[in-house]
Design a binder for these strands. Sequence first.
RNA 1: GCUGGUAUAGCUCAGUCGGUAGAGCAGCUCAUUCGUAAUGAGCAGGCCGCGGGUUCGAGUCCCAUUACCAGCUCCA
Length: 590
Amino acid sequence: MKGRRTMSVEMNELQTLRHSAAHILAQAVKRLFPEAKLTIGPPIDTGFYYDFDVETPFSREDLDAIEKEMKKIVKENLKIERFELPREEALELMKDEPYKIELINELPEGETISFYKQGDFTDLCAGPHVRYTSKVKAFKLLSATGAYWRGDEHNKMLTRVYGTAFFTKDELNEHLEKLEEAKKRDHNKLGRELELFTTSDLIGQGLPILLPKGARIIQILQRFVEDEEQKRGWQLTKTPLMAKSDLYKLSGHWDHYKEGMFVLGDEEKDKEVFALRPMTCPFQYQAYLNRGRSYRDLPMRLNETSTLFRNEASGEMHGLIRVRQFTISEGHLMCTPEQLEDEFKGCLELVQYMLQTLGLYEDVSFRFSQWDPDNREKYIGTEEQWNEAQDTMKKILDHLGLEYKIGIGEAAFYGPKLDIQIKNVHGKEDTLITIQIDQMLAEKFGMEYVDRDGKKKNPYIIHRTSIGCYERTLALLIEKYAGAFPTWLAPVQLKLLPIADRHLDYTYEVKKKLEENGIIRIEIDDRSEKLGFKLREAQLEKVPYMIVIGDKDIEKGAVSVRSRKNGDMGSMPVDDFIKMIKEEIDTKQR
RNA sequence: GCUGGUAUAGCUCAGUCGGUAGAGCAGCUCAUUCGUAAUGAGCAGGCCGCGGGUUCGAGUCCCAUUACCAGCUCCA
């Protein structure tokens, strides 16, 4: 929390500038499109936006014209003045702006109703703003998209114009360059270029094909995760990918998650209807229910590398980050109330270890995802149950000293979550990992254990992932490392580059020796190309090590090593290189 | 699902006013056997996303559809 106050002051000045930029945008739109209706236009992390209700959405040409008009307004150096009005007069002033009237009517009694006026433009606004339009020197309009009024899909879709603004032109240009850089790191572009994955029109949306290199990385991650989970007392299950609707009716999915499921069959016509699983919970519960359990069986930690299917709406898919079929490092832990805190901590420690090893820990933030009491139909359970579950979770989080923000309405339908959030290269935040406490499903499924006192009780259940969903994690790793994976993760760890054909025999000898030492992700480039050409290609493929083999190396029984990161490392005995790379792989160096 | 945009060779892109398809890179063949980021020459490569329509004629115009991109909604 330290330092945040000073940060927020700096941010406020920038936000004020951007907020004023949004007003200048609205003024320009009103001048060029008088029939446009105003709604809201706040500053955001990366700039600002303003939502308009217009007959036809703005085209790129419209944006260019609007931007030109904005520059004029800046040049006019209009004074930005605040004034206040009583409610009646405020409504009269805004009589042609239905959205503003809606906003005014919602202001509580006694609230100040303030306006900001600059030249021919006046907007309902709490402020603050810069004093003159000329202060807004460095700005750019970026895009026009659709956005629902008040973020509700049942409302009308408005036209949102995004822009950004900075104090100086240099800062603006730097920001625009960063946006360009981000495009190059985008997993969806880089992942295809590096042949990690592809998609096919015939297979469909949200169903990526992992190519050999991408599948290799996921295999490495999966082995790492499963081994680490086993070390920490988790037991692997393999449960079916589909089940009868009966299972989901019991779990609550049928009532609360059916939209998100692929249902096989027709309830009207077929005797039995199946559905592909969107979550693993009810399946692993059946493993728990295999026989009667006692407190001696607890905690029971069940993990599974679990493929899930979710019928996401068509506009929601994105590369490997949002897909319809994915595989997750899933797990469910059944324990007694006394064990809950320690077990939760254990789950968190596993996650932290994973994220630290992958190098993603510095990029994540925590979110305590709670239910929305105003939206009861989204959830199972009673208010008492929710309050109890959230209190329990809050206590644990506070004991752990975690810094977190609260997400109202972000809970699962069966319980609150600790979500570990990460931003992609474009700044869009997604959940990477989740740890949840569930007091409701055990009861629904009749999961019990016999306690010391001989009484039957429902266990607490922790739902968790340890590395999250493999596809999404891979996406974040591609962006984190710009495709240059640490050697332990690299799909091809080294390339052997013989200079001429007469070096081939020795090259195969070196390959064999490496393989005998467990270094097996090797390629040989035996094409009759010049060394520089082979090196360039290997470098562009982001292979960690390039091993050059020529006369000098054969003479000395050595290899010439070039690292992706540091360039030419000179000649070294084969054994020395093996020792070096093994050490790097074994310690999972970044 | 909603709003907008895009779709031409494996990739990046050009293609004028509607007149029958073009480049660079990659690929293949040949020559070259080379020491730390591109050797040269030649060849081949296209149902212009898919389906309709308008037209004498459609890569180009219209409609529909699929996929991709940005955003909204939703979500791991």
